[in-house]
């Protein structure tokens, strides 16, 4: 196993870069960070739409969220991989396809986290803000969102773990990321699948487990602050995020 790592660590880490496109673990992390960064603003809008005072906006965003949640991520990838080029008229590469699919998928999940974070705040917070004369937007920006986003930080972090795991599906459309790199190494060596896939699984595990543990630490920290100050922050409702394995 160490021998394989010694011989192939560059491929595992950055793929064929700089001779070819960036790949390997670096590409996985890059795709995940891009995916999170781009889906966050969409999620914020979707999440606010889910609790909008306007019925039509609530209905449209609910349909979007439920449709995405009911569709396998692979289907979303295929839609953007095969159908998008037909719509926009020219082919697109695997990398932006995967990032695009991740943004669609994660926006829906993060939107639900934003929504439940907002709904978990005591009603008195928004009433107090509105009683001062702040309008809806001002109340959201100054009072509701800072608290809601802070409270849902641990859930968002676990969702980021899901996002990292989802990037592995880029393998199916041959995006140069970590799983793809391992499969390349595997087919080159032919006789060492146990070692190669153990390296792959172990690396993912270390990355994701570290993030999971930090999410738990943040959650404990917030829970402690809440205990010290139980009157003002109600604990998040038992909201089940459905993680991606």
């Amino acid at each position: 196993m160490l021998q394989i790592l010694r011989d192939n660590w560059v491929l595992f880490l950055i793929g064929q870069y700089p001779a070819g496109p960036l790949g390997g673990l670096a590409a996985t992390v890059l795709i995940a960070v891009l995916g999170l960064g781009l889906s966050f603003p969409c999620a914020l809008l979707l999440g606010l739409g889910r609790i909008s005072p306007f019925r039509s906006i609530r209905a449209v965003t609910a349909i979007i969220v439920h449709t995405v949640r009911g569709t396998p991520f692979l289907m979303v990838i295929f839609w953007s991989y095969f159908a998008l080029p037909i719509i926009i008229g020219h082919p697109i590469a695997g990398f932006p396809t995967l990032v695009g699919a991740l943004v669609i998928y994660e926006s829906a999940y993060l939107a639900e986290i934003v929504r439940s974070g907002i709904e978990a705040l005591p009603k008195g917070q928004i009433e107090a803000a509105r009683s001062l004369g702040l309008n809806y937007r001002q109340a959201m920006m100054s009072v509701v969102l800072p608290q809601a986003l802070y409270n849902s930080l641990p859930t968002m972090m676990s969702q980021f773990v899901s996002l990292i795991k989802e990037t592995s599906l880029g393998y199916v459309i041959s995006v140069n990321e970590f799983t793809f790199a391992a499969a390349q190494v595997n087919s080159r060596l032919l006789t060492k699948p146990v070692q190669v896939f153990s390296i792959l699984a172990l690396t993912y595990f270390l990355l994701c487990f570290a993030l999971t543990q930090s999410a738990r630490a943040v959650e404990r920290h917030i829970a402690r602050r809440r205990r010290e100050d139980p009157a003002v922050i109600r604990p998040l409702e038992s909201f089940v995020v459905e993680p991606a394995p």
């Binding site: 008195g124 107090a128 803000a129 509105r130 009683s131 800072p146 003002v232």
Partner: peptide, 26 residues
Amino acid sequence: RSGIGFVFQQFNLFPHMSVIDNIILA
């Protein structure tokens, strides 16, 4: 509403802001 002060039973202070920031928000 900005011309009507309202005081709640449960105070409803904004816990993420300091006392002075609560007052100067409006």
